[in-house]
Structure formats: structure tokens, C-alpha cells
Design a binder for these strands. Sequence first.
DNA 1: CTCCCGACTTGAACACGTTCAAGTTCGGGC
DNA 2: GCCCGAACTTGAACGTGTTCAAGTCGGGAG
Lengths: 235, 235
Amino acid sequence: MTEPSAPTTAAPADRPRPRPRGEETKRLILDTAMRLFRERGYAQTTMRAIAQEAGVAVGNAYYYFDSKEHLIQEFYSGSQVEHRRAAARTLTSETDFAARLRGTLHAGIDANAPYHAFAATFFKTAAEPTSPLSPFSADSAPARDASIALFREVLEGSTAKVPADLRDDLPELLWLAYMGVILYWVHDRSPGQAKTRLLIDRVVPLIDRALSLARMRVVRPVVREVIDLVRALRA
Amino acid sequence: MTEPSAPTTAAPADRPRPRPRGEETKRLILDTAMRLFRERGYAQTTMRAIAQEAGVAVGNAYYYFDSKEHLIQEFYSGSQVEHRRAAARTLTSETDFAARLRGTLHAGIDANAPYHAFAATFFKTAAEPTSPLSPFSADSAPARDASIALFREVLEGSTAKVPADLRDDLPELLWLAYMGVILYWVHDRSPGQAKTRLLIDRVVPLIDRALSLARMRVVRPVVREVIDLVRALRA
DNA sequence: CTCCCGACTTGAACACGTTCAAGTTCGGGC
DNA sequence: GCCCGAACTTGAACGTGTTCAAGTCGGGAG
């Protein structure tokens, strides 16, 4: 009932408990792993190689990361940040919806381009529904919400006239389209993933056009149903 | 230059060479594996357990199957056959496009329902672009083409009026939509995957409606562009 | 200074998928 | 009847991700 072990000395309000002594070890392991992944690919990089290259014991890597896959998780959130950064230029200079969407999609590819070679493997684990790495999983909710928020920015910073009932859900649909682009990109074997760029450049005007059509009287009921369906499935 | 080893005795035209002595062993291993997969899940089923349960050595399983994943490949093609069978009832009795599409999509879920629990794992490996199990891979081309052909049947056996330039590519687009449904199904944690059923029931009328709209003058250019894009990406 | 405790580190050990050199079986040619 | 070669079968051994009991280290309480 009484205070358990009253605080003596000066008030320790600055750093309560987590004094990360081994924080740099964690960074070292992570950086080494990412380097080896890029150099040799994910499957060809063993945990033993990572540990040896980083100069630590293999068990030590597991002290900081739950599994080999979780090493990728870090890269995942980092890529999200990079996407935001790369999209910023477009989002601060453009007001046209199509231009903003196009720039943001390209920025997403730019942010991940250095990792295309082993993004395939990453995507494999991400596709598993039970995996915490799945973009649809609860664990990924923060990154996903951040990504959706980015597409909300795309929309709201634009001059596009969007029906009121679409404004709320469109960002999520744009994010879904982005996931589709990523899916295509992962499978894209063309040099420099040129076909993915082509896909973006040609699909953006289509979305833009579809948005205009969405205001037509004949099309409205369809749009209405799409919105309802999305909401029903999310529930 | 002369005939190498002229055929003696009666003409052996019936069975040239592949006399499958161990064909039943292969079936035994496969059946055992599928049973254990259903009972314990994919990851929890070891190759040693499969071999032991089937009463063979572990190496023997590798004589018939290249890897643990390839055990799933068999189920994959089997599921394709089952889908066809399950869709047949609808396709022989219905002529309305929406009804045919709906029945065929539901049939696809029916065919895979018993395996939903471990389909997740299966899907994981299938999502890897380099995997021979990927629905987009060359190895899967036969199964994919067969599936697309099924959706061509859906369209051509129907009374739907479809613009000529869409008729060729629509089956592939329908197959793509089917892949989307499967993707949702894999992630669907609702009891009995009810939400996937809901998705099908509500998305089919939308597709049907969109097909009607595709004939409108204002919409035609958009349709035209979609077709061109699909063709460009396939090339 | 000494002791203690939690943060950190170690590497041998485990379970698994996979490989492979060595064996066994069997049908047909002689 | 005998033998050959191909089809088939075996299980020990390898490399991998992962675990864990046993340490080491460092800073604060006494």
C-alpha cells in the first residue's frame, strides 16, 4: 500500500530504466545483416555468417532479434520512413492529384529499389497471413496506418474534387493499389524494373479518370456499392 | 546408322519404358503427407514424420518429391481439377453471366476449403516470385492456363454482351480477380470464411455492372486503356 | 572496496530439410 | 538358371535456424 522503495537521492526523472548499453551492438548486427543480405541475398546469408562478420556470437543476434525474419522487419519500417522522405518533394510542390499520386508511387519504388533482389524473399514471409510481417497483420498496423496516412496526404493536398463519401475511404484504396504495384514490382524481372514504372505511369491516369467518372450519375451507385463493400469487409 | 537393337519378340508398342513400379509408394507418401498436413499443419509436420508414418525412409520421399514444398505442388494441381469439377454444375445449368461467375468463384473456395488451415503456409511459398509454386511462374503455366480457360468458359457460355476487344482479355482479368479473392480468403479469419463468401456475392454484381458500363461511350476510352495496359505488361 | 543483480554474451546442442553413397529388388536378355 | 542394369530404397551425415544453460560485465548499494 505504501510506496515501494521511496526514491532516494535526486529525482531520476530523465532515464527511468531502459539504459541501452548494447544498443550499438544491435545496430552493428543489423547493419552487418543488411549488408550481407544485399551482397549475397537473404537465403545465402546464414546467421552464423552475420554473427561472425559482426564479431559476435550467434546467440547474441537472437538476444536482439527474435528471428532471422525479424531482421527484415527493421528494414521494413525503415523503408516506410524512406518512402515518406522520397515522396516529400512531390507532395510539397505539386497540387495536381495525378501528379501527386504518380510521384508518391514512384517514390515507393525508389525507396525499395536497392533491395529488389532480396525483397522477393522478404515478400515471401510477408505474404504469410500468420506472420507478423504481413502488411495486413496487427503488428504491421503502425507502418500500414502511416502508409495510408501518406496517401491521405496525397489526396487532401490536391485540388481533386472527390465525392464526400469517397474521401474517407479513398486513401485506403490507394494504399491497396500501392500494394498491388509492390506485388507487381516484386515479380518484375525487367531491367531496372522498367515495367513497374510503366505500370505506374499508365495506371495513375486511369485512376484519375475513374475518379472523374465517379461523379457521373450512372456510375454513382457502383461507387456507392464499392464503398459499402469495403466497409463491410473491414468490419 | 542401322536400327539400334532391332525389336525382337512381338511389337512392344504398348508400354515403351516408364514402368512405374513405385507409383503406389509415391501415392502413399503423398496421401500420408496431406493427412498429416491437415492434422498438424504444414510447419509442424516433419519429413521424418511423413516418412515414418508412411513406413518408408526419409530419403525415399525425396526420390519422388524434390522438396517438402513440392508435396504441396501436387495438391495444387489437384485443387485445380477439383475447382473445375465443382464449377461444372453451375456452368452446365446457368447462362446468366453473373450467376456463372458467382458459382465458379464459390466453387473455387469450396475446392480449397478443407485446406484453409494450412493453405496459408502454402500461399507463403507460392508468393515467392522465384518459387516454382508461384501462380505467375512458368512451372505453374499449365495450371494457370487451365484456370484462365475455366473463366473463359464462364464468359463464353453466358448470354453477356461483351465488347469484342474485351472478349479476349476478360478471362485473364477474371482469373486475376479470382486470385484476389483467394488472397483475401487466405487472410480471412472469420468463421467458415464467411467474409470471403460475402466478398464474392457482392463483388460479382459489381463486375457485372461494370461490364454494362463498359459499353457506354464515356467509359469506352478507359476500357480501351485498361486493355492496352494489360497487353503492354504481359509483353 | 565488495558484493549483487540485471543486462549482456557465449557456443555447444537441438530439430529440421536435404543430400548422397551405398545398398536392394526385379524384370528381361542370354 | 544367371546376370545386368535400372528403378527403387536406405539411413547416416551435412548445413541451417534456433534455444538455452552457463557464463561475463558494469555500476550502484552497503
